[in-house]
Amino acid sequence: DVTLRVHQFLPLQAAIPARAITPWIEAVESQSNGRIKVEHYPSMQLGGAPPALYDQAKDGVVDIIWTVLGYTPGRFPRTEAFELPFLVTNAEATSRAFHEFVEANAMEEFAGVKPLALHVHGPGLLHVKGDGVTTLEDMQGLKLRGPTRIVTRLLDKLGATAIGMPVPAVPEAVSKGVIDGAVIPWEVTLPLKMTELVNTHTKFDDPRGLYTATFVFAMNQGSYDALPDDLKAVIDANSGPDTAALFGRAMDEVDAIGEKKAEESGNTILTISAEETARWKEAADPIVAEWIAEMNDKGLDGQALVDAARALVDSNTAR
C-alpha cells in the first residue's frame, strides 16, 4: 500500500546501512505483511550534500533519512551533551540513553520529524602514525583530524593541532603525512583503511571513551501521520530506545571487527593508564565548563543537560 523512501549518505555495505537499516527495512516489510515497501537509497543517490539530509526528511523530499546530527552545527544544541568528552561507555547502552535523553529534554529540536532512532557510535580513539600517544605530553604538535567541533576544541586544548577536513580526505592526508592521524571510532577505521596507514591506536583504561558522535534515523511527520493505524503501529514497534540500542549494537559489533583487524595487522594498541586518564579528564574539564556556559548563554540549563546525560548513560550501562 505504502512505499517509503530511505535516503542516507553511506554505501550499502557500511556498518549502519548493512547491520541496522537493512534489518530495520526487513522487519518493517515483514511485520506489515508487505503492505509497507521500503526503497533504500544509499550514498546520497537522490542528490544533495549530507548536511541536507535532515531537512529532506523534514520537508518531505524523502520519507526517512539517517544522518549525523553534527553535520548541521548549531541546530541541535541540547544533543551536544552526548558529544562531550569522556561520556560514552559502549554504543548500545549510550544509544539507548541518548534516545531517552532526547525524548525527555530535546524533542523541540526535532519538531516536524518523527525520530525513529537516536543513537551514537562507539568510543572514539586516537589513530596515529609513529610511536603513538601514551601520555598527555605526546599530544604536543600532533596534527590530528578532529571529528566534531567539541573534539576539535579538545584537541587544541590538549596541545595537538586540530585539522578540520572532510572524512573522505583523511586516508590520503594521513598517508602523505599532511596529518599525523585521526580521532575516530574503530568502526570508521575499516572504510578508511586506517590500520594500513597508521602504526598505533590509543585507547583509555576507563569505562568511558574519549568521545562519541550522535546520529538520527528519522521519518517525515506527514508520511507517518498519513499511515493507517495498523501500519503506524508497525513503525511504532520499530522505533524508540530499543531500536536506538539496535543501531548502537551494530556500531559495537563493527568496532570489534575494526579492533581485531588492527591487532592482526601487527599495529600497536596502546592503553592510557587509569592515572594518566585522570589527567586527560582534568584537561578536558574546561571544555565541559565552556559548553555549559555556552548553553546558559542560549537560555538553556547546561549543567542540568550534562547531569541528565551522565545519569542516563550510567543507568543504561548498568542495566
Binding site: G47, G48, A49, P51, D55, Q56, D59, G60, V61, V62
Partner: peptide, 13 residues
C-alpha cells in the same frame, strides 16, 4: 514538494 524542497539547499551545496 520533493523537487522544490530540495532546491532550498541543493544549488548552494
Amino acid at each position: 514538494v520533493p523537487a522544490l524542497a530540495q532546491l532550498k539547499s541543493l544549488v548552494y551545496s
